[in-house]
Amino acid sequence: MITRNFFLFLARNDFVKNRASKWGPKLGAKSVIAGETIEEAMETARQLNEKGLSATVDHLGEFVYNKAEALEATHYCVRTLTAMEASGVDCNLSLKLTQLGLDIDKELCLSNMRTILDTAKKYNNFVRIDMEDYSHLDPTLEVLQELRKDYDNVGTAIQGYLFRAEQDVDKLKGTNIRLIKGAYNEPPEVAYQDAKEVYNNYLNIIKRHMLNGSYAAVATHDHNIIAEVKAFAEKHGIAKDQFEFQMLYGFRSELQEEIAKEGYKMRVYIPFGEDWYGYFMRRLAERPQNITFAVRGLLSK
């Protein structure tokens, strides 16, 4: 837990962040971030598609502080969707509402999301609202609920380490949800702290969402969870087109390809952009294996 908290502290540390560009590539960041531009992200998606893998791209960034920045982020999302259509890649879009002005004005955020979803709908594409820290959970779900009145091409993510995850999954029946363990440092008042309890609750919400007939995006690198989900789907007659597996770009690539070859949809989350630091630190915090990966990258340089 000390190691996890250490990397989460670094993720919020502006002093370190401002100097990270010098040593970030040596820590392995370049291996898990698909460049800084839309063009680089599309090329990465194309390469993954050639291996039978689907993709979702996320232009990294959080917490804009004025309307101009929120509008700029919105236009960037529209450009990204347009690039997907032009390049013909099998890829959808992931984003964070704080990029679109959630902390400034909820109506501004809703307006920006409608602009993005209108573009995605025109291209028959899908947009995933990433879940952020606990303070943004209810505002995010409120925005999603409002958008779902007019759009069926939008979903979100639910974090399995939260006590309320089961309740939220049940409320979101019929919604395409990415199911994740969770990567933020939440207090014991709202989240499980024990790894086994997180594991059990995570599996529980996956199974509940799959059983209620909703589309489930199971985001995990844990081969035990993957095996359990496969067995559960087979036992309950849940078709392979009712769920997918998701993993991060640069992690367990061989396993990703194995899953795709077995006939399951395997989607790779591709982050890109200049603001990679917070994302990379949270990935190191999530699992000891990720820290080992980063150290290996450092020693190989």
Results as ranks from 00 to 15, higher is better:
N224E: 12
I177V: 15
A216M: 05
E234F: 02
K230C: 12
D168H: 10
D194F: 02
K181G: 08
A219Q: 08
D168Y: 10
N200H: 12
A217K: 11
R178I: 03
E186T: 04
S214W: 01
A217M: 14
D168A: 03
K173F: 02
N204S: 13
N200C: 10
I225Y: 00
S214T: 13
R208F: 00
F232I: 13
I226L: 04
P187L: 01
R178Q: 03
I206A: 07
T220N: 03
R208S: 08
N176S: 14
V218L: 04
I225W: 00
D168S: 05
I177S: 09
L172W: 04
T220I: 03
F232G: 14
V190E: 12
E189K: 10
V169Y: 01
I225K: 01
Y184R: 06
E234P: 01
I205M: 10
V198M: 12
P187D: 06
L179T: 09
H223A: 09
P187N: 09
G182L: 06
L179P: 02
L211V: 11
A191V: 10
R208V: 10
E197M: 12
F232C: 14
Y215K: 07
I225F: 01
E234T: 07
G213S: 07
E234R: 06
N204Y: 03
S214V: 11
A231V: 12
A216E: 06
E189G: 14
H221Y: 00
F232S: 14
G174I: 10
S214G: 11
N201T: 06
I206R: 03
A233K: 05
V229Y: 02
L203M: 08
K173A: 15
Y192S: 11
P188M: 05
V229D: 00
G182W: 04
A216S: 15
T175K: 04
M210K: 06
V198P: 03
D222K: 01
L203D: 01
D222G: 02
D170L: 15
E189M: 09
D222A: 00
K171P: 00
Y202D: 08
K173R: 15
R208I: 13
A217N: 15
R208T: 07
I225S: 04
I177P: 07
N224T: 11
Q193E: 08
L211P: 01
Y215V: 06
N200E: 15
Y215I: 03
K196I: 13
D222I: 02
A195E: 15
P188Q: 09
L211E: 07
I226H: 03
I225P: 01
L203H: 04
L211D: 13
D222L: 05
A191G: 10
A227Y: 11
V169C: 09
N204F: 03
Y215N: 04
A219C: 07
Y192Q: 10
Y215M: 02
I177F: 02
N204C: 05
I225T: 11
D168E: 15
N212R: 14
A217I: 11
Y199L: 07
D194K: 10
H223S: 13
N201M: 06
Y215D: 01
L179Y: 02
V229W: 01
L179E: 06
K173E: 13
P188V: 08
Y192H: 14
E197A: 15
A231S: 14
S214Q: 08
Y184E: 12
E197W: 01
K173M: 05
L172N: 13
